[in-house]
Design a protein around this nucleic acid. Structure first.
Length: 313
RNA sequence: CGCGGGGUAGAGCAGUUUGGUAGCUCGUCGGGCUCAUAACCCGGAGGUCGAGGGUUCAAGUCCCUCCCCCGCAA
């Protein structure tokens, strides 16, 4: 089959790689335009583009595929289009191009967690299980009929980053299986139950902000859900203290949430929460390197008893 | 040329303003104390101060160049 792939971040890469390996003809790749990224404003290409170039596949980077991508897409005469975290919304004109259909790989068990950050939201909401769904892309956002689904458990050790890696591989597998079934005509379509759906907004930086009046568990989930981006943080007097990893602790001590219960190299950094405490394991002070809280406390000190948000680091 | 912080012992930091003996906490090694210990006491090892060049009687510290790491903004 002639397949056009649309994707952008790291999550999309295994799917594209699997398509290439599957023997299908990947005739073109659409990805987001190169944008200034990182320090110094250097322009960087998306991970998908890197792989596409490496594989010698023509790359298209329309600002808006709906407006200026239609011609290019049509000229590729695809039998099938595949989207995986492309980052742009398709309209009916685009969807009408491929002979068969457009398949989307989505990193949640639809209809739960529609939107662009399903993995983060699954962890944030403390779901015990998530997964990947392949679906018929339609003009809505993740609203099309579902094709195949595969579950993946969420353990306490999982972060958005690690889960993204896992799900991207699962997604690649599921995509190939989906295409095989589509070709064989044995792929059933299931409508999404709108009553069970949830649409989760895009991640914003301030979603990483930790509010210690929440439960230890909720804070723990947020830390994992925001890792590696945007990263959970504590607003302090002179900037944000990023929190890369933490561990909920149950304690009988009742104090004001945010109170520093201990802050030394031996016991680590323990902060009171709404229902107990949380140990901040790996932290990063403003302008500083990421390190364990214990290492941080060897060279710098935080007074116990104060509210962490009022501390100067 | 987007703005800014930083590189000093295995780890985390101070010292740079005002050039003059390399310092702190932890770890590590040896010894002691102890029923015992990650606790306590005593002692030791461990540094081309990111790299190169320059100024100087003397540079971690001042000047120039380069490399690397990080925060913010995108």
């Amino acid at each position: 089959m002639r397949i056009v792939f649309m994707g952008t971040p790291e999550f999309s890469v295994p799917s594209l790689r699997a398509l290439i390996a599957s023997g299908h003809q990947v005739v073109g790749v659409f990805t987001q335009p190169d944008r200034p990224k990182g320090r110094g404003g250097k322009v960087r290409m998306s991970p998908v583009k890197e792989l596409a170039l490496q594989a010698g596949i023509p790359v298209f980077q329309p600002l808006k595929i709906r407006k200026d991508g239609l011609e290019d897409l049509a000229s590729l005469e695809p039998d099938l289009c595949v989207t995986a975290a492309f980052g742009q919304i398709l309209n009916q004109a685009i969807l009408d191009v491929p002979k068969i259909c457009t398949v989307n790989v989505h990193a949640s068990l639809l209809p739960r967690h529609r939107g662009s950050a399903p993995i983060n939201w699954a962890i944030l909401q403390d779901d015990k299980v998530t997964g990947v769904t392949t679906m018929m892309t339609d003009a809505g956002i993740d609203t099309g009929d579902m094709l195949l689904k595969r579950e993946v458990p969420i353990t306490d050790g999982e972060t958005a980053g690690s889960l993204t890696e896992t799900l991207s591989e699962v997604g690649a597998d599921l995509l190939i299986e989906t295409i095989q079934k589509l070709e064989a005509g044995t792929c059933e379509r299931t409508k999404q139950n709108e009553a069970d759906m949830s649409y989760d907004p895009m991640l914003k930086k301030d979603m990483g902000k930790l509010d210690f009046s929440q439960t230890s568990r909720a804070l723990f989930c947020r830390v994992r859900a925001m890792n590696p981006w945007p990263c959970a943080y504590v607003e302090c007097a002179n900037g944000n203290l990023k929190v890369w990893s933490a561990n909920p602790v149950s304690t009988a001590i009742k104090t004001l949430p945010g109170t520093v219960l201990s802050a030394n190299a031996k016991d680590g950094l323990l902060v009171a929460t709404g229902n107990g405490a949380i140990e901040l394991l790996e932290i990063q002070a403003p302008n500083a390197k990421r390190m364990t809280a214990k290492a941080f406390l060897l060279g710098r000190s935080i007074e116990t008893g104060i509210i962490l948000n009022e501390a100067t680091l």
